[in-house]
Deep mutational scan, measured.
Amino acid sequence: MDPFVVLVLCLSCLLLLSIWRQSSGRGKLPPGPTPLPVIGNILQIDIKDVSKSLTNLSKIYGPVFTLYFGLERMVVLHGYEVVKEALIDLGEEFSGRGHFPLAERANRGFGIVFSNGKRWKEIRRFSLMTLRNFGMGKRSIEDRVQEEARCLVEELRKTKASPCDPTFILGCAPCNVICSIIFQKRFDYKDQQFLNLMEKLNENIRIVSTPWIQICNNFPTIIDYFPGTHNKLLKNLAFMESDILEKVKEHQESMDINNPRDFIDCFLIKMEKEKQNQQSEFTIENLVITAADLLGAGTETTSTTLRYALLLLLKHPEVTAKVQEEIERVIGRNRSPCMQDRGHMPYTDAVVHEVQRYIDLIPTSLPHAVTCDVKFRNYLIPKGTTILTSLTSVLHDNKEFPNPEMFDPRHFLDEGGNFKKSNYFMPFSAGKRICVGEGLARMELFLFLTFILQNFNLKSLIDPKDLDTTPVVNGFASVPPFYQLCFIPV
């Protein structure tokens, strides 16, 4: 058959498939802009700032609406009420993970971030239990974070109060905490193996944040037939998995079943207990991918939040002064901060919360999916439909947070200066898919920041009023603009 005829037939089939998918069930789905064949609503979305586009569309179609990214149908949730109703009140029905062709290629359905069903539930339950087990290797997770915080302070001392970009050092600290939990080992910041790991993690975040990856996920045929950065992403992930597998083999040879040292040991012990169960989800494949998931999810998000926190503290020296006064009063100079201190430091706690609220790190979270046909607000959402959640619409709700575009710790303080919780605080998402490392991340943010401010004054290279804190939105995360500062020993 003539190649031209084959091409026309293929394009015609794709067009018909697109029209059929977009028209099927439209009477039951939430409203939304009319999609174009094949490309859907992509032309109506700013790929570099999806969150802003969703906010604009919500003003037209309401808090629940339908979009098509290519052939992929998505239902968008915008605003606290619908997000709570879906992710919390109907948590089980909305607990699936959205379709990610690239991740599915890399992870093969294993791990904790992109798995679904029984596998996801069992691996998540085990990971939560293990991360909360403060007795691994007779050292609590808090001990590990405190140790890394001391190392971080010593690295900052080496800058000798000269101007520096904190990106690298602030990236090393949370990565080392995860390494300590998974591998029972922290690395020197100049260790070549550690630097290679950091390089792969950072490069992957840069790649994932590009519009090209959005295109690959919406048109998965590209993955096999086109060159691009997605190939580098898959190569980096394969490198990390190979490295983790080597460490798993080392653990198998040296493990003491009665004295687990780290996450890998705990997983291997669980595998041993379930070795007679042919349906067990505790396999080497799941261990390797879960460890890679924890490394990827637990490094860049925390380091970016820390980097943004220091920029905001530079911009608002009056806030920094209040935090340091609270540190001096509650902790002093002669001991290290600990998590028990947080309950006695409402202002510092409010500042950490406000940093996370203000920066809105992951504006749309990772997409969910419905696990069955769901009736939601008089609409029928078919099983498997991807759910896109606007966390921006919750964290920047102007009824809950007056002047949401302003950095103001009073958003989390009552009139008496006591810490005030808010149900709208969802930087880790909400419901059954809430970030498994939430507790660890909150511990790291509090301890790293208090250790830094206990030991250093922060000095800006320019007038604080002239510092730009506008986030650089890159399609996946909101990151701070480049800046330098000086760490002046107190």
Rank of each mutant, 00 (worst) to 15 (best):
L14S: 07
L15H: 06
G27H: 14
K28E: 12
P37R: 01
I39P: 03
I47P: 15
K52M: 08
S53A: 04
N56A: 15
N56V: 12
F69P: 05
E81N: 13
V82T: 14
A86T: 07
L87T: 03
L87P: 02
L87E: 03
E92M: 08
A106K: 07
R108F: 05
R108G: 09
S115T: 14
G117K: 06
K118R: 12
W120F: 04
I123C: 07
R124F: 00
L128K: 15
L131A: 04
K138Q: 15
R144N: 11
Q146E: 13
K158R: 13
P163G: 08
F183L: 08
Q184W: 07
F187H: 08
Y189G: 04
D191G: 05
Q193K: 12
Q193T: 10
L197F: 10
K200I: 11
L201D: 03
E203S: 08
I207D: 05
S209L: 10
S209A: 10
T210G: 13
P211K: 10
I213M: 13
H230M: 06
E241T: 11
E241Y: 07
D243K: 15
I244L: 12
E253Q: 14
I257E: 12
N258V: 07
F263C: 01
K270M: 11
E272H: 11
S280Q: 07
T301P: 14
T302K: 00
S303W: 09
T305Q: 02
Y308E: 03
Y308D: 00
Y308F: 12
P317N: 07
T320L: 12
I327W: 02
C338N: 05
C338Q: 13
R342L: 14
V351M: 12
V351D: 00
V352P: 00
V352S: 05
Q356E: 03
I359E: 01
V370L: 09
V370I: 07
C372I: 07
Y379H: 07
T385S: 06
T386N: 08
S393M: 01
P404L: 02
D408G: 01
P409D: 00
H411C: 00
G416H: 15
G416S: 15
G437L: 03
R442T: 12
N455T: 09
P464Y: 13
Y483L: 05
F487S: 04
